[in-house]
Nucleic acid binder design. Structure first.
Length: 112
DNA sequence: CTCGTGACTCCCG
DNA sequence: TCGGGAGCCACGA
């Protein structure tokens, strides 16, 4: 039986609505481990589960794609654009518009 | 058991 | 805005 934490991560990832993005740290927190951002990553690119997870909707805390260019960066950006997510000229995602608040109806993750 | 390794984050300068 | 350094955590060699 897999770790509940990993399960939670997957579970939350699946909840990210199209056209929205979340951060690694955010998912980790929701999954129950505020310091488990790295584990989110692990869960993301390991396991065969990855093929049905919206991994492209996860970005770092600065609102930018963490993948190296040429190794996923391009693809992630393309996928996001497909869902309607726009990028600023500097390659940053507009958090005010596209950051998933963590749970339906307003902020649950973001403090006031 | 110790080390090295990240699609991370925060803090400083 | 950008890097460097430190903290964190699970996993595999």
């Amino acid at each position: 039986m897999p770790d509940p934490f990993q399960q939670q991560i997957v579970l939350w990832l699946k909840r990210i609505p199209r056209g929205k993005v979340a951060t690694y740290g955010m998912i980790a927190s929701l999954a129950g481990n505020p310091r488990g951002a790295r584990q989110v990553v692990r869960a993301l690119h390991s396991s065969s589960i990855k093929q049905r997870l919206p991994w492209h909707r996860v970005v770092n805390a600065r609102g930018r794609i963490s993948l190296p260019k040429g190794l996923g960066y391009e693809e992630q950006m393309a996928r996001l654009k497909t869902e309607g997510v726009r990028f600023k000229p500097n390659g940053q995602i507009d958090f005010d518009t596209y950051l998933w608040t963590g749970s339906r109806r307003g902020r649950s993750f973001l403090k006031s």
